[in-house]
């Protein structure tokens, strides 16, 4: 590279480069439910080799629209909000709650479901060259075209890792974890023309330091999750948002 900087770690691997793009938080919304949905249950994700679990077995949470067990709420975007192609949507809820998402991409209206009536939604976008925030402190890095590629005063989303099987969030104090689900992965469809069911994927947020991946499934009492749907395609990443950014 001719301009900017590169930072190497102790193994000689580039840890950061001014050519990298980072995600900055542009908005944080608190959004509330608009509907309670019919019976659903959520499974922990399984390995493909495992057999199905029946209704009510361990690692299954159950919600019903009549309030038996617990409610499951539908939550949408805030009024007037339009998802644009370069936006990343992260969601979180009270620790101990579960949250699911599907269709989080710009050509569809995303749906979120949670056992919490109110969730928090963060909007992140890659920092663009014209994001020339003023600052008297910190570090500004420029790319080869002379545009600002990184600014340490930006409301940078600290991406702490992808949503994988470890269930651990590397989260220092003062940050709230948000889950940025892969929109496509959040939407799984049974390959059966008569039963095109949609299966939001999500997590149970156990605490600021851990989560459990979940798959939401309609709660017919005899349903067993099809084998090909058990494997967690739920990709996505976890972003830490500085709690001082909350309104």
């Amino acid at each position: 590279m001719s301009y900017g900087f590169q930072i190497f770690n102790s193994d000689g691997v580039i840890a950061a480069s001014s050519e990298d793009r980072v995600l900055a938080i542009t908005n944080i919304f608190s959004v509330s439910w608009y509907d309670r949905v019919t019976a659903w249950r959520a499974f922990d994700f399984w390995d493909m080799t495992q057999t199905g679990q029946a209704y009510g077995e361990p690692n299954v949470e159950i919600w019903r629209a009549d309030g038996t067990f617990h409610y499951l709420y539908s939550v949408g975007y805030p009024p007037g909000f339009v998802l644009e192609p370069d936006m990343f949507i992260g969601v979180t809820c009270a620790y101990g709650g579960s949250i699911f998402a599907r269709d989080v991409h710009y050509q569809h209206a995303a749906q979120f479901r949670s056992d919490q009536p109110t969730i928090t939604m963060a909007v992140a976008r890659p920092i663009k060259p014209n994001d020339n925030a003023e600052s008297g402190h910190g570090l500004v890095a420029y790319d080869a075209a002379g545009n600002i590629a990184f600014h340490s005063d930006s409301k940078v989303l600290r991406v702490t890792g992808n949503i994988n099987g470890t269930n651990v969030i590397n989260n220092p104090s003062g940050y709230t974890p948000f889950f940025f689900f892969d929109g496509s992965a959040a939407l799984r469809q049974v390959p059966d023309a008569s039963t095109k069911l949609l299966h939001p994927t999500g997590v149970r947020i156990n605490s600021a330091q851990s989560y459990t991946r979940r798959l939401l499934w309609s709660a017919a009492t005899t349903d067993v999750l099809p084998v090909h749907l058990r494997n967690p395609y739920a990709r996505g990443f976890i972003g830490l948002v500085d709690q001082t950014l909350f309104p």
Binding site: A15, A16, G138, S152, V156, V159
Partner: peptide, 19 residues
């Protein structure tokens, strides 16, 4: 780097960048 919120190291300023 000294920022408006205190001193931060490079590995916490930007944990995962889009490459």
């Amino acid at each position: 780097v000294m920022t408006s919120t205190g001193q931060m190291s490079s590995d916490t300023l930007n944990t995962y960048g889009i490459v």
